[in-house]
């Protein structure tokens, strides 16, 4: 059945506009949600990257931000909660000709999908993983996520969850991601540039995007005053990058780490046939 696969072209060959990447469907997101900015950034980035919508696949799990593939004109896969990265991995390994981008939220990616996050960084498959982090479960109406501050009060955890927030960038650096960056949904042009850079960087690229939830975390509107460009960006030195992201207050924007790990080698050209396999079972008399 692999003979029916349409191989996508490798090189940019057309000029696209951001709206070419929009499906026109109306998002379920609340007015003012940061995810609108991320959607706009992705559309701009893909137009700039120059590959047509049919050569791009957006893969997601479950949650507000995971609805994003339906709002774009590309191919998409809206799967189960937390499993976007394995789906994207299986797809990219068998279809390296496609541009594969996994997207989702902090609950989807760092909690139920946390194990996949670690191992996707380890595998270093050439794709982009973009997490829209609003430090809350929005679709289920406001529960603390792994990145929520310890003292954030909520119905399910009165007085705060009391847990140290997860540091996704430190985990990504430590686990082997080849590109680690932080972006802000309120800066669509800057985020679009970051996305293009991440797509073009070989290996597993991870962008943590601060994307405010204006409904359950209205105080996150203040993020636009808190974000600033990162003073440094580390190349290759994983220890230095770890120190950088651990010391950071979470509001430094831009590329924080770029590595030089080789990505997964392509599958071999067939060396044998099924008939060769069959002969191994034969016992001559």
């Amino acid at each position: 059945m692999t003979d029916t696969v349409v191989a996508a072209t490798e090189q940019p060959h057309c000029v696209f506009d951001a709206k070419d990447f929009s499906s026109g469907a109306h998002p379920v997101w609340c007015p003012g949600c940061g995810d609108y900015g991320v959607l706009a950034s992705l559309e701009r980035a893909l137009a700039k990257q120059g590959r047509p919508p049919h050569e791009v696949v957006l893969v997601s799990g479950i949650g507000c931000s995971s609805r994003l593939p339906g709002y774009m004109s590309t191919y998409g896969f809206h799967g189960v909660h937390g499993r976007a990265l394995p789906v994207a991995t299986g797809l990219k390994l068998t279809r390296p000709d496609l541009e594969v981008i996994a997207v989702g939220g902090d609950g989807d990616g760092y909690s139920i999908g946390g194990n996949h996050f670690i191992h996707a960084c380890r595998r270093n498959v050439d794709m982009l993983y973009l997490v829209m982090d609003n430090r809350v479960y929005g679709m289920t109406k406001g529960q603390p996520s792994p990145t929520t501050e310890a003292d954030w009060d909520s119905d399910i955890a009165p007085g705060g969850i009391g847990l140290r927030p997860f540091n996704p960038l430190a985990v990504a650096v430590a686990s082997g991601a080849n590109y680690v960056a932080r972006g802000f949904s309120g800066d669509p042009n800057g985020l679009a540039d970051l996305i293009v850079d991440a797509i073009r960087w070989p290996g597993f690229a991870f962008i943590e995007v601060l994307s405010p939830c204006v409904t359950f975390r209205p105080e996150q509107r203040e993020w636009k005053k808190m974000v600033r460009p990162s003073a440094i960006s580390i190349e290759r030195d994983r220890a230095a990058a770890t120190a950088l992201v651990l010391a950071d207050d979470g509001f430094s924007m831009g590329v924080l780490y770029r590595g030089d790990r080789a990505s997964v080698a392509p599958a071999l050209k067939p060396e044998i046939t099924v008939a060769d396999v069959e002969r191994e079972f034969m016992v001559a008399v």
Partner: peptide, 27 residues
């Protein structure tokens, strides 16, 4: 050797979802 891929997932959830991803791509 047949040109395919076998991936050892981090758990069964990963394994089956990788399988779906590959299938979605036509393999």
């Amino acid at each position: 050797k047949l040109g395919g891929r076998l991936v050892l997932g981090e758990d069964e959830l990963a394994s089956v979802n990788m399988t779906l991803g590959a299938s979605y791509g036509g393999t």
